Simulated scan of single mutants.
Amino acid sequence: MLHGLAAATAALVLTALLAALIRTLMLRFGRAGRDTTPHLGGIAVALATLGVAVAGPLLGVAALGDGVAPLLAAAGAVALLGLIGDLRPLGVRVRLGVEAAAATAVVTLAGLSPGAGVLAVVWIVFVTNAFRLLDNSDGAMGAVAAVTALGLAVCAIADGRPGHGLLLSVLAAALTGFLVHNWHPARIHLGHCGSLFTGFLLASCAVTVHAGAPGARTTAELFALTLLVLTDTVLVLLSRRRAGRPLLRGGGDHIAHRLRKLGLTTQGSAVVLGGAALAATLVALQVHDGRVAPVAVLPLALLVPLAVVLLLRVPVYGPASRRRTPHARTPESAAAPADFAGGRG
C-alpha cells in the first residue's frame, strides 16, 4: 500500500513538472515561438507512467507482475506513434495498423482464444481512438480517463493482479498531475501521444484483467467502464454523417461542446463528464464484485441511444454546414483538424 501511494505521488509530481517543462520549451522553440497552447503534453503522461512503473522493479520496491512488462512495451510503442502523429500527421491505415499490431501482442499474451482475441483487438483499437477523440475540451479527457483508471485498478487488485493495479493507479495519478495544466484555461494539451497512450493502456489493461473471466459479466463491466467515450464517439460519427460532414474531420460537435451550448462552462462540462464516468464506473465495480447481476448495466445501455438522440438536437454546425457536396470546402471545414489524421477532435 505504501509503495503504491509513493508511486502514485511520484507520478503526479513528475507529470506536473514535465508538463510545465514541455510547455516552456514548446512556447520558446515550437513552431518558431507561435504555439499559444502546446499540444505535446502527452509526453509527460507517458514518460511519468512508464518511468515510475519501471522504477519499482529497478529499485527493488515493487514488482511489475506477470504480463505488465509487455503491456508497457506495447503502450510505449503506441505513445511513440502518437508523438510522430503530433509532429507529422500520419495516414489512418498506418496508425490503425500499428495500434492493431500492439493490441494483437497484448491479446496473444493474455491467452485469449482466436475468436475472442479478434474481438478484443478490435475493441482495444476502437477504445484507444475513442479516448483520443474525447481529448477535445479542457480537462474532459483527463477527468474521464483518471476515473476509469482508478476503477480498473480496483478490479485488478480484487482479481489478484497487483502489478496491473499499481500501473493503473500510476496512470490515474499521472493524469491528475496533468490536469493541473490542462484544466480550463488549458496551458497545454495531451495531443495524440498522450491520448492514444492513455486509451490504449486502459483498453489493454481492461482486456488483460478480465481475460480469465469472459462472458456476460466481463462484457457488462467493459461496457460500463467505457460508456462515456463510446457514447461520445457514436454521437460524433452519427452527427457528422447526418450533417454530410467528413467523418474524419474534427469539429466542435462532441458531448463537451454540446454541454457548453446548453449553458455549462468548460469546467462544468468536464465535471459533468467526469461525474458520469464515475457513476458508470461504480456500476461496473458492483458487477465485478458480484453484488449486482450483469443485467444491471442494461439501463446504462438504454441511456446511450437516448443521450445521443437528445444531444443530436443541440445545434453545433450552423446552417452553412448542412449537406455539402463531397468536394465543397468552407473556411470552417478547411480550418478544422482531422480527428483521425491529426489535430484535436
Rank of each mutant, 00 (worst) to 15 (best):
L202A: 01
A335P: 06
L179M: 11
V122G: 10
A279S: 11
T325C: 05
A146C: 07
V272T: 11
R161T: 13
R344S: 12
L179H: 03
C193F: 04
V45F: 02
N136S: 15
G33V: 10
M26F: 12
L81I: 09
G194E: 02
G345T: 12
V118S: 12
G343N: 10
G4E: 00
L71S: 04
A277E: 09
M1H: 14
A334T: 14
L87N: 09
L152T: 04
G91T: 12
T24Q: 13
P38Y: 14
P162D: 01
L134A: 11
P214I: 03
G163W: 01
G163V: 01
G67R: 08
L196Y: 03
L27T: 12
A220G: 00
S137A: 15
G4M: 03
V54F: 13
T330H: 10
L40W: 10
F178R: 13
L179Y: 02
F178M: 06
A143W: 07
L25F: 12
L282T: 11
A186S: 09
H192D: 15
L50M: 09
I84S: 13
T148G: 02
P299M: 10
H189Q: 13
V292W: 01
G151K: 01
S239C: 07
T24G: 14
H184T: 14
R23G: 03
V316L: 07
A103G: 14
V209E: 00
I124E: 04
A102Y: 05
G30T: 06
G250A: 04
S113V: 07
L40R: 10
L237G: 02
G139H: 01
D159N: 10
A203H: 00
L112P: 02
K261R: 15
L152Y: 05
I84K: 12
P57L: 08
G76F: 09
A301S: 06
P331C: 06
